[in-house]
């Protein structure tokens, strides 16, 4: 009986600690969301309130009226287009590397090392190139860069997923009358559907969340939501309502997406080191 009590107390303590920790990590997000529903008066009232006195969507309405909300659309366009291209090209490349060992270890290592180059060092010469090619502040420019920047990740992750497919499945298809291309479509892609899905989500989120590339390569036409958020930081005063509403607009889609793919999160984040 004594030990049962102790067990219970221990569990209660752990629950309390877990709740406190989770509160710490969730509270800032709560605060961000909550601010976006407050009226301007309430945001700038002292002392701050912990719950909006009156929930309203005026902050969002302003964003849509001013056209600022299109930056979310811009983010969506570049993130999804670059994801589709990177997934397609990267998966094919990953297949060759995994199955034919094309380029050997050198190519695989070079590709993953590309992932580690700091963006600022890449974006600077790219910017100069884009000025020359007139690609600054265009969808194509951003899409191209995101595609290239995400390729190493796609190749690396898909290589892992493809290596998980038993070779015999493909060989059986070859013997049964498929060409190499047919094997790709009929066996490889269906077999790593989950991996394709998870990797695409990550690729999308990387592009969606990027700030520095967009900061350098956009002006007014294809500004993404991350850049737009920083526009509301004034010298003296910050436009909290807009900052929070714009941040929420950019964050909600990610929360929804991530909610659907909890299972693949860890493998994606660890560059495939942990298999879920």
């Amino acid at each position: 009986m004594r030990s049962a009590t102790r067990h219970r107390i221990k569990l209660a303590l752990r629950l309390a600690a877990a709740s406190a920790i989770t509160l710490f990590f969730v509270f800032p997000i709560y605060w961000l969301f909550m601010i976006s529903f407050k009226t301007a008066d309430e945001i700038y009232s002292y002392p701050p309130t912990w719950w909006p006195g009156q929930i309203q969507f005026n902050s969002y309405a302003v964003l849509f009226k001013d056209g600022d909300a299109t930056t979310v659309w811009n983010s969506f366009v570049v993130a999804s287009a670059s994801t589709v291209i990177a997934m397609f090209l990267g998966t094919l490349c990953a297949y060759a590397i995994a199955r034919f060992r094309t380029g050997g270890d050198h190519l695989a290592n070079w590709i993953i090392s590309q992932r580690m180059v700091p963006p600022i060092a890449v974006v600077f010469p790219i910017f100069l190139l884009y000025v020359w090619l007139k690609l600054v502040d265009t969808y194509i420019g951003l899409i191209l860069l995101y595609t290239a920047f995400n390729l190493p990740y796609v190749i690396w992750m898909m290589r892992g997923y493809i290596l998980d497919i038993p070779r015999a499945l493909e060989e059986s298809a070859l013997v049964d009358g498929c060409t190499r291309w047919q094997v790709l479509w009929k066996v490889v892609f269906p077999m790593c559907r989950a991996g394709l899905f998870a990797t695409a989500i990550f690729t999308f989120v990387f592009a969606w969340n990027d700030f520095i590339f967009a900061l350098v390569l956009t002006r007014t036409e294809v500004t993404t939501y991350t850049v737009q958020v920083t526009h509301y930081f004034g010298g003296q005063s910050n436009f909290w309502a807009k900052i929070s509403a714009m941040s929420v607009l950019g964050t909600v889609p990610i929360f929804i997406i991530v909610g659907f793919m909890q299972r693949y999160l860890v493998r994606g984040m660890s560059l495939g080191a942990i298999k879920g």
Partner: peptide
């Protein structure tokens, strides 16, 4: 035609 050790059936 070939039969493989681990069956090599398509799970989907």
């Amino acid at each position: 035609a070939m039969v493989f050790q681990n069956y090599a059936l398509y799970p989907y």
